Computed example of a mutant assay.
Amino acid sequence: MSKRFKVGIIGCGIGRSHIVEGYLPHADKYEVAALCDLDETRLNAVADEFFVSRRTRSSDELMSDPDIDIIDICTPPAVHTKLVLQALAAGKHVVCEKPLTGSLAEVDQVRLAEKNSKGLLMPIFQYRYGEGVAQAKRIIDSGLAGKPYAATAETFWRRTADYYDNPWRGRWATELGGVLMTHAIHLHDMLTYLLGPIERVFARAETRVNAIEVEDCVSASLLMQNGALASLTATLGAAEEISRLHIAFEHVTFESNHEAYSPGDGPWRIVPVSDEVRQAIDALLADSPPVGRRFNGQMEAFYGALVSGAAPPVTSEDARRSLELVTAIYHSNDTHSDVVLPIAEDHPKYHSWRP
């Protein structure tokens, strides 16, 4: 009989989505055994909803519980690093919401701890999961798409003052950033998932929509290592919420769906340059296995890694690449200059991108 992993979730806000989309559909693989939240009302409401008897306001209790296999961290960003390091030191497997840490120095600290822990660490990047992005990834990896030319990533969302009427949102000390960190980070990860690493970044970031500390509008120009050009645009002042990825290759153009919170879902527009390419793509995708969407797909893939001992489907290296882009955008905005990646220990924002 396959192992069923016991999960302790810290943070019942986004943690509830992990339960609904990620763990309940795989009840044969995971048991949500305990919940932790500082807000006792929310803790009890979510625990009652999903019949979780073990509930606590102390994350230390979950870390020290030998029956808990996985610690799932869904807290505000500022405490992620501390909790990840504590869980790895306790030998737990770890799932952590974005951003994984608050600096590249902290990412590297976590990666070192990960090497010395028996637990696997998986950052959350659920936009990688869905039929649309899976088909695009398969076509690109097969070589059928050909040379990459250009791409755009648009995160046009809406957040009002009510959203920021909260003790931790919109503040550098607790949210660690704005639209780059909390909203566009998933679509930007999906871009690099399909196009590969970034070589250079030039960017501007402004606060134009809400009276907050952090940025809520961003425009960035990227040169990818493979030579492709990409542009990123994000705002929290859009009247209509969409997330859209649009990529032109030599033989195929891809356009994601426009669903703000699930652009990886199918169908995507896949436009080949010829009937010959279309036929080759149809043949390639004819036997494509089904892919769960968002947290469903990521938690299923994580289970496969846990039982096989393979690397997790999303790694701390992926998280570093994501936060390296964030760091480069902030530095480019501050210095009005191109930023060359990768960013090393001698970079002025290696230890913190915050003002």
Score class of each variant (00 low, 15 high):
124 I>H: 06
124 I>V: 15
126 Q>W: 07
126 Q>R: 13
126 Q>P: 10
127 Y>D: 06
127 Y>K: 07
128 R>G: 08
128 R>C: 09
129 Y>R: 06
129 Y>E: 01
129 Y>I: 11
130 G>Q: 09
130 G>E: 10
130 G>C: 15
131 E>G: 13
133 V>T: 10
133 V>R: 00
133 V>M: 10
135 Q>R: 12
135 Q>C: 15
135 Q>M: 14
135 Q>K: 13
136 A>F: 03
137 K>C: 03
137 K>H: 11
138 R>H: 08
138 R>A: 11
140 I>Q: 04
141 D>M: 14
142 S>I: 08
144 L>F: 12
145 A>I: 09
145 A>N: 04
145 A>Q: 05
145 A>G: 08
146 G>Q: 01
146 G>P: 00
146 G>S: 07
146 G>M: 05
148 P>M: 02
148 P>K: 01
148 P>R: 01
149 Y>C: 11
150 A>Y: 00
151 A>K: 00
151 A>M: 07
152 T>R: 01
153 A>V: 10
153 A>L: 02
154 E>R: 10
154 E>Y: 13
155 T>N: 00
155 T>P: 00
155 T>I: 00
156 F>L: 12
156 F>Y: 07
156 F>S: 08
157 W>K: 02
157 W>A: 00
158 R>A: 11
158 R>V: 09
159 R>V: 08
159 R>W: 04
160 T>A: 10
160 T>M: 09
161 A>F: 07
162 D>N: 00
163 Y>Q: 01
164 Y>F: 08
165 D>A: 05
166 N>P: 05
166 N>D: 13
169 R>K: 14
170 G>P: 04
171 R>N: 03
172 W>K: 04
173 A>G: 09
173 A>K: 05
176 L>D: 01
177 G>N: 07
177 G>Q: 07
178 G>P: 03
179 V>I: 15
179 V>C: 11
179 V>K: 00
180 L>N: 06
181 M>A: 13
181 M>Q: 05
181 M>E: 01
181 M>I: 15
182 T>M: 14
183 H>S: 10
184 A>S: 10
185 I>W: 06
186 H>S: 13
186 H>C: 12
187 L>R: 01
187 L>E: 03
188 H>E: 08
188 H>R: 11
189 D>E: 10
189 D>P: 08
189 D>C: 10
190 M>D: 06
191 L>T: 09
192 T>D: 05
194 L>G: 02
195 L>E: 06
196 G>K: 12
196 G>T: 15
197 P>H: 15
197 P>W: 14
199 E>W: 03
199 E>H: 11
202 F>W: 13
203 A>N: 02
203 A>I: 04
204 R>S: 15
204 R>H: 13
205 A>T: 03
206 E>V: 14
206 E>D: 13
207 T>H: 04
207 T>I: 08
207 T>R: 01
208 R>E: 12
209 V>T: 10
210 N>H: 11
210 N>L: 09
210 N>W: 02
211 A>Q: 15
211 A>S: 15
212 I>L: 07
